[in-house]
Amino acid sequence: MDLELEKTIEARAAVLRTIKEDLITRLNLAYEPDDLHEDISLLGSGLGLDSLDALEVILGIEHSFGVKIADDNIGILRSINTIADYVMAEKGKNEEVQS
């Protein structure tokens, strides 16, 4: 595996790990992090989160990554992977501003 790809994967893996651990803790899920596929649906099918659960997840993301999620941006909760996309994009924006 080339270095650039390895770095990309490492960065994403770290974000995914944090999201999964946060989900398991906050929602008291009876799963290990490896049991949660990154594309698992969070709303409706899959984990089947209700609106209160969704709020808990949003609070967790905001706390863990220091990003803000607007009330009308529920679409990012489609899956763990879509949350990770949002977090990485927001972190990227912040890094651009700081540099």
Binding site: M1, L5, T8, I9, R12, A13, L16, E38, N81, A84, D85, M88
Partner: peptide, 8 residues
């Protein structure tokens, strides 16, 4: 598994 990530 080592390649099973989106964004690649």
């Amino acid at each position: 598994l080592p390649y099973a990530y989106s964004g690649l």
